[in-house]
């Protein structure tokens, strides 16, 4: 190891973040303010998620980091290296082997278990940011559960596009109370949040907010009676593993219109290709 304190942050900071996490778990979906620290990476790269992960890690943990479902993209590789260097924890690319998973924009395809913690990187924690510019007012809306405005956003979608066109960061209602931004995961992943056995933690570094879903929390995607929520994905099978149930990325292969659809979850895809399918 090195001269770093375990997992980079000092113990007082980790205690402060743990308090925010516990409060978030006690009030599911409520955005808890916390004193976000400068991290050795730019805002937008997951400074919130990294701080939450740092505060949750113990030396016995096995860490997995994914970015858009992939383990080998820049963001995922840098954060994984960061914790290897500062916390010397074991790392893995296997979802089932990991105890802490930090993610950007995806929920793993493999069902999570009670022994796991899923940490989301959140750019904008406030689901009403672009509807109501005043933060004082959005806080009041949350406090009074006065969520008509959220529904207006979906109404506008249908009026303009004929259907609810929001395809990521799709707003959810948590435990019948708070409306929450699930971070920019595709709405395909929204049902995975519901009744999930793992603890789900959301960290927004720049915005200095932490919120959480305790295990087995009811998470409902907002919708209309006559325009119900649909967890959509590309209507293809994965070109590598052949899975028809996982979320797909579209990959452009040449400049003549050639393209292929492959699983966005690389670990799941590899496992399926090896013989799971």
């Amino acid at each position: 190891m090195s001269d770093y304190n375990f997992a980079y942050l000092d113990e007082d900071t980790k205690r402060m973040i743990r308090r925010a996490i516990l409060k978030g778990i006690a009030v599911p979906g409520y955005q808890v303010p916390f004193a976000s620290r400068e991290m050795p990476m730019p805002y937008g790269w997951g400074t919130g998620g990294v701080q939450v992960t740092a505060a949750t890690l113990v030396p016995e943990d096995v860490l997995k980091v994914i970015d858009q479902g992939a383990d080998d993209t820049t963001n995922a590789v840098s954060i994984r290296k960061f914790f290897q260097k500062t916390a010397a924890v074991a790392v893995t690319e296997r979802t089932r082997e990991a105890t802490v998973i930090q993610t950007r924009h995806r929920v793993p395809e493999m069902p999570l278990t009670q022994d796991q913690i899923l940490v989301y990187q959140v750019p904008i924690p406030e689901p009403m940011r672009f509807l109501e510019p005043r933060e004082t007012e959005t806080r009041r809306i949350h406090a009074l559960a006065d969520y008509g405005l959220m529904q207006v956003r979906l109404y506008e979608d249908i009026a303009r596009h004929g259907e609810i066109a929001t395809s990521y960061a799709y707003p959810v209602e948590v435990a019948g109370r708070y409306v929450m931004d699930p971070s920019p995961i595709p709405k395909f992943d929204n049902p995975k949040l519901d009744d999930c056995p793992a603890i789900q933690l959301f960290g927004a570094g720049r915005e200095q907010r932490i919120y959480a879903l305790p295990p087995f929390t009811r998470v409902r995607s907002l919708d209309f009676d006559d325009h119900p929520f649909v967890a959509s994905k590309a209507d293809h099978a994965c070109a590598i593993c052949g899975s028809t149930t996982s979320y797909l990325d579209e990959v452009i292969t040449d400049d003549a219109g050639g393209r292929m659809f492959v699983c966005s979850d690389t670990d799941y895809c590899a496992e399926m290709a090896e013989g799971g399918a």
Binding site: G148, V152, Y155, E156, A159, F224, D225, H227
Partner: peptide
């Protein structure tokens, strides 16, 4: 008014705030 929201959305906001969840009826 909410200037960024369509006329229908402006009129429908109160209905939705009061619990209306049927798009066709609101419209």
């Amino acid at each position: 008014l909410r200037l960024g929201v369509s006329a229908g959305g402006n009129v429908g906001e109160r209905l939705m705030a009061n619990g209306a969840r049927h798009y066709g009826n609101i419209r």
